[in-house]
Structure formats: C-alpha cells, structure tokens
C-alpha cells in the first residue's frame, strides 16, 4: 500500500516520448502516401496511363511521353508498380510532389504552399476564437445550469452543434451579403488593392476573412460549450472541490481548480480539431470561394488533377499527424499524471 514517491522523469523521458511520436507520425505519413499512390495508380481508367497514352496520341515519342508524365506525376507511367513506387517515394523524400495538371507546369508544392496560408490563418483564428468563447460560455452554462441563462446557453450549443457547417456558411452568406450586404461574399481579398503591407490591403484581407472565420467559430462553438459544460459539472461533483471549499480556499482559487481540471481534456481535442479542420475547411472554402487547401482539393478532384490531389491529401495528413503530436505533448505539459507516465 505504501509506495515510495516516484521520481519524476525529466528531459530524457520527454525526448523519448517526442521521438516515439515522430516515428509513429512518419510511419502514418508513409502509409497515407502509399495508399494515395496505390489509389491513383489503380483507379479505374488509370489517369497516369491515360495521360501517357494521350501524349503518345498527340505524337510524342514514348520516351518524351514517359518523361512528361513522370514530371507531372512524380512517378513513371511504365515499368513495374514497384519501380514506380520507389520512384515516387524517392521524389517525396526530396519534397517533390510532382507538377499540377490543371495549372500546367506549376509545382504541386508551390500550389499547396500558397493555398496553405489561406487555410491556416482562418482555421487557427476560428478554432481559437470558438474555443475561448465556447469554454467561457460552457463554464457559465455549468454554473447557471439550473437557471434560464444556463438552459439558453446549452440550447445554443446543441443547436449550433447540430447544424452542418455548410448550412451555417450559407446562412451567413445570405444574411450578410444579400439581406444586409455589409461583407464581401467571396474571395480572399479585393483585387483593387496592391498586395503588400499597406492598410488598404490588410483591411480588405480582414474584411474578407470575417465570414469564413465566423463560420469556423460558429461551427465548432457548439461542441466546445457542450463539452466544457459537462466537464465543469463533472468536476463540480468531484470531492476535491468541496474539500477546497471546506478548507476555506478563496473563491478565485477554487474557481481555478475547477476550470483547470475541466479544461484539461479539451486541450487535446483543441489540437486535434485544428488538425482536422485543415480537411474540414473544404465546405467553408468552397462557400466563400477562399483559395485554401480545401478548395484546392475540391478543384483537383473536379479537374482530375491527380498529382495535386495526392499532394493535398498528403499535406492534410501531415497537418493532422502534427496536431496529434502537439496534442499529446500539450497534455504531457499540463497534466502531471501523464507526465509521470501513470494513468490513475
């Protein structure tokens, strides 16, 4: 029964943990890359072969056609599947995702690079905003849960949680660009302004970002408020909160005990949801014609731009894997029970 106080592991254990995550993440990325390679190769009507053959029909020599296709897809259209796979992995290691078909000759990596900025910032802003808002409201909803305000807050959470994100987006578009036209309906920025660090351009950027960010915020706010409310209610019932009150701790300190314990599980979800939103941004970017990763993916699918499709998938995967690692490290940093590697 009486066990000695454990030594808390320090740097070495942390490094081991990070290394483990990185290795697992790399394996996951490799698996996704392999799957997307196989799918693109094995899809009915083999796009790579089709490309190769259409180039042949256009009068290219087999050699030329092979090279052109290899440049586009990052792997060879002829040769065994294994050879092609090795070639594809080889170029991946050099961070070469091939070239786009729909925007001929442009590298997939540069397309993704320019699209990423339009996804990362709004997603980050929207997620953090909805997290702060949802968590704060969740605490109120829990504390006032027997009153009208609490009911109202919980109801707002359930409602927003239940409405699909594209409905929220379309409603916002209808309200703020048609009924009451105060915000631009689409695009990332007004083309009238010269790109750069000038007030007009920045203002236009922000103006255009309002609706997408608000949509991201509303879309995940419901989940946060509901999760936080139930966490706070659960922690309120924990013995240590009553014990803290019976020890005469100041209200502010008891509140901090409560909030910190209730918010802890949400940090993991936060990091994960930032990762997931890179993929989930499809609807929102489509609605607001926002040139981010989601729109890039949609366009690559509709134009059968397989190199771009595979590349975008891969980047979204990397985003999610990184978010997973960050989530776990975050948890390690804030929960002493995880830090010392014990589950209880």
């Amino acid at each position: 029964m009486t066990k000695a106080v454990r030594e808390r592991p320090r740097g070495a254990a942390l490094a081991r943990r990070v290394a483990g995550h990185v290795v697992r993440g790399l394996v996951m990325i490799w698996v996704v890359a392999t799957i997307s390679f196989v799918i693109i190769r094995e899809i009915p009507g083999d796009p790579v072969q089709g490309m190769y053959e259409s180039l042949l029909q256009k009068g290219m020599s087999p050699d030329q056609a092979e090279r052109a296709t290899a440049v586009l897809y990052g792997f060879l259209p002829t040769g065994s599947l294994w050879d092609q796979y090795v070639g594809y992995m080889g170029s991946l290691l050099h961070l070469d995702l091939g070239r786009s078909l729909s925007t001929p000759g442009v590298k997939v990596t540069s397309l993704i690079g320019s699209a990423a900025q339009w996804t990362v910032l709004p997603v980050l802003a929207g997620t953090l905003l909805s997290f702060l808002l949802g968590v704060t409201m969740g605490v109120y909803a829990a504390i006032k849960r027997s009153g009208k305000l609490g009911d109202l807050l919980a109801l707002s959470g359930s409602l927003l949680h239940g409405i699909p994100v594209y409905v929220i987006g379309l409603l916002l578009v209808a309200i703020f660009t048609t009924l009451w036209p105060i915000l631009p309906s689409g695009g990332p920025v007004d083309v009238a302004f010269v790109p750069g660090f000038n007030p007009g351009y920045i203002g236009s950027l922000i103006h255009h970002a309002v609706l997408p960010v608000v949509t991201y915020t509303l879309a995940s706010y419901g989940g946060w408020i509901l999760a936080m409310k139930s966490n706070v209610v659960a922690v309120l019932g924990d013995d240590f909160i009553l014990a803290a009150e019976l020890r005469g701790l100041k209200r502010g300190i008891v509140f901090r005990y409560l909030a910190r314990n209730a918010i802890l599980p949400l940090f993991t979800i936060l990091a994960l949801s930032i990762g997931m939103l890179f993929g989930g941004s499809i609807f929102i970017e489509e609605i607001f014609n926002y040139p981010g990763l989601g729109l890039l993916l949609v366009n690559s699918i509709s134009t059968r731009d397989y190199a771009l499709m595979g590349g975008t998938f891969l980047v979204i995967t990397v985003g999610i894997v990184v978010a997973n690692i960050v989530a776990d490290l975050l948890y390690t940093a804030i929960d002493p029970r995880v830090r010392s590697g014990e589950a209880s």
Binding site: D239, F240, A243, A244, R247, G248, Y257, P336
Partner: peptide
C-alpha cells in the same frame, strides 16, 4: 464563513483520497 473554514475548524474530508487537486503538487 470562508475564513472560519480551515482556519478555525479543520475538516478532514470523507474519502480524503480524493480531497486533493490532482493537477497541483
């Protein structure tokens, strides 16, 4: 009342096993 609790009247909680904040030393 708050100042009385803890300072004047000490209370050892039922199931004191769980009477501590798990996140703080």
């Amino acid at each position: 009342l708050r100042r009385t609790r803890g300072r004047k009247v000490g209370y050892v909680f039922q199931a004191a096993q769980n009477s501590l904040n798990p996140l703080k030393t």
